[in-house]
Write a protein that binds this DNA or RNA. Structure first.
Lengths: 355, 355
DNA sequence: TCTTGTCTTGTTACCGATAACATGCATGAT
DNA sequence: ATCATGCATGTTATCGGTAACAAGACAAGA
């Protein structure tokens, strides 16, 4: 808070060093363009004055802010926090600063954020998801900067995309549970009627249900209940609802590891043995899933990698050379990690129903 | 990516509406200064052109960016994510945008971040913690904008502060375990020798140890092991180390709920009953602590509130009126939440040692 | 010697807004 | 009718850099 009369400007540095401001600018942006001797004189002046460049002015002049806007559903979900972290790391090297906004899973809020961010003139925009309001899509299309949709691999991206197929992830979960011999299979996820929506989660459940239908055992046993985002609590309560509706359920896919852990803890409380009485698959491979007992079988997605790849893509794209680059869609994939909460259907399991 | 010839500027809007740019500027910044009729003409022109103001130019001219820099240890810790979210919410109303950086618990990285952020000319700076490199402290002092240190209540803040006393939180944990009748009491936290340091956690452990020493039972049984930040894994491994050194331990305080849950899960795996064989207290009141069985006794801190209060403080401070405001230190406090992982010391416990 | 190219530095003209001050006009009090 | 007052709008001068082009000095090649 120590107040000088005025912050030193490049002008002040240039006078002290006896050069033009352009030379000072070069020392900071492209040191090798300036002779050894001049450079050290300028650096000494910078040091002496405690000069800090003003990047606002620089951005206005150069028409480049080195800002990248990232719009995510929330920060309080490790997956998205990981993505943000990966993105930051990849961009940091190229001196980009992230402008993070979060929507709490509302596309109206996403639109509001885009409107608020565009006047800051970001050099690129990253948004989670492919479902946007009409106005938001228009804004993104006309923004005249690269746009990357992440956490999905859309058939028709606005521009670029980095993610994986949530639908296929859901299908993989269903196929796996079928392969274990289960037939009474259910899924739990949050409600799809509120203002907040987890479209990626809905996609996973859709893929899951599709496989069950294809297997001829009906895909209808999907409990959608409680607010987005799914939480530990959500899982715990969803299990209650599920057991009311289908006491003989043998296997459950939860839309998120958080829900899954909630389900697991509720099973502990109710004396339902996992995996003997119930097989359980989560999604996301959260840390906690590895620590619970038994450890959670889940679908692993490398959230950090999504951020990192996105950052790398942008660094390439924003490098002047790559002016007319083709839209890219990067699929980082997913994998099913078998751990302790799933087991083959066993005849003895029937005893619970016969009881 | 649709490229117009050139983005419309305020100049274009003013021409179309037949007014000066100043009038357009007023319509956007202070609508009531402009007559009803002119205003609607200007708004129509803005609409027609799809004009988006350029805040870079605006910032340069007004010498106000409406950026607030927030430097946190990490985003992948729910507590700090909550703080960031609270901060964002409180600032959003006043149209501030957060520039988030994270240090991975390294003060050298903090210094680097401060250097990188200052040229963006934030209107205020928020940093987690009170331990900074000497250069970083200098930079903050001379930044000529409000600085808020959060997550602690320092005796000598650089400027403002919003947080609580970690030392007292540690003392509270120790007093509580003593009050239950425990005497073989230990604490676990991450190492203090690496480059990454959790100074707030260290403070808590210091307070904890101090109480034990005052009670005459030695404060030395503090296991500091593993990298910062403490994780589930950390807790699991720390318990192993602890049991090697003190098989008769009755009660454990973990610097973080993440460690605590790790300890708890490791107890499950080893067949140690909690709370019958071991009382366990965590810190942070993470969601997961409420879901594990038994639910975790912990010290609750309202991380979201820290962010919110910080945001509110800044909005007040940055409101021109409050030019020469006094440095403020806001203590949001903490509270001990008794749940299932703690129980009074019972004579039968001794059997484990006698065995 | 003249040409050409490289290296280094400077000059000029913005980038797109806003602060501060100025102006013109209608209103109502005197 | 006169003038202070307030409202609506315009004018001028930056804010602090950088792009693009220009120019001078010197070395190497013809």
């Amino acid at each position: 808070m120590t107040s000088m009369l005025r912050k030193p400007t490049m002008r002040d540095v240039s006078r002290l060093a006896g050069v033009s401001t352009m030379t000072v600018s070069r020392v900071l942006a492209d040191p090798e363009l300036v002779s050894e001797e001049t450079r050290s004189r300028v650096l000494a002046a910078i040091e002496q004055l405690g000069y800090l460049p003003n990047r606002i002015a620089g951005s206005l002049s150069s028409q480049r802010t080195n800002f990248v806007t990232a719009i995510l559903p929330t920060l309080t979900n490790v997956n998205f926090a990981d993505t943000a972290q990966g993105l930051t790391e990849a961009l940091r090297a190229a001196d980009y600063q992230l402008l993070i906004g979060y929507t709490t899973y509302r596309i109206e809020e996403e639109e509001r954020l885009i409107r608020a961010m565009l006047p800051r003139r970001p050099d690129a925009i990253v948004v989670a998801g492919t479902v946007h309001t009409k106005a938001a899509s228009q804004l993104l299309l006309r923004a005249d900067v690269p746009v990357v949709e992440i956490w999905e691999t859309p058939a028709h991206p606005i521009n670029h995309a980095v993610g994986f197929s949530n639908y296929e992830a859901g299908r993989a979960a269903a196929r796996y549970l079928l392969s274990l011999g289960h037939r009474h299979i259910a899924a739990v996820g949050p409600s799809t009627t509120g203002e907040a929506r987890d479209f990626r989660g809905e996609d996973r459940l859709a893929g899951f249900a599709a496989v069950l239908r294809e297997a001829g055992i009906g895909g209808g046993l999907v409990v959608q209940h409680g607010d987005v985002p799914a939480s530990f609590d959500h899982g715990a309560r969803a299990l209650g609802v599920l057991l009311d509706r289908a006491p003989d359920v043998e296997a459950v896919f939860a839309v998120s590891d958080l829900s899954a852990v909630g389900v697991l803890m509720e099973c502990h409380r109710r004396g339902i043995r996992v995996p003997q009485d119930l097989s359980l698959v989560g999604f996301g491979d959260f840390d906690i899933g590895r620590q619970v007992v038994p450890a959670l079988t889940t679908i692993r997605v490398d959230a950090h990698l999504i951020g990192q790849r996105t950052g790398e893509l942008l660094v390439t794209l924003l490098d002047e050379a790559a002016a007319g680059a083709e839209p890219a869609v990067v699929d980082v994939g997913f994998s099913l990690v078998e751990r302790g909460t799933t087991a083959p259907a066993a005849p003895r399991r029937r005893s619970r129903r016969d009881h």
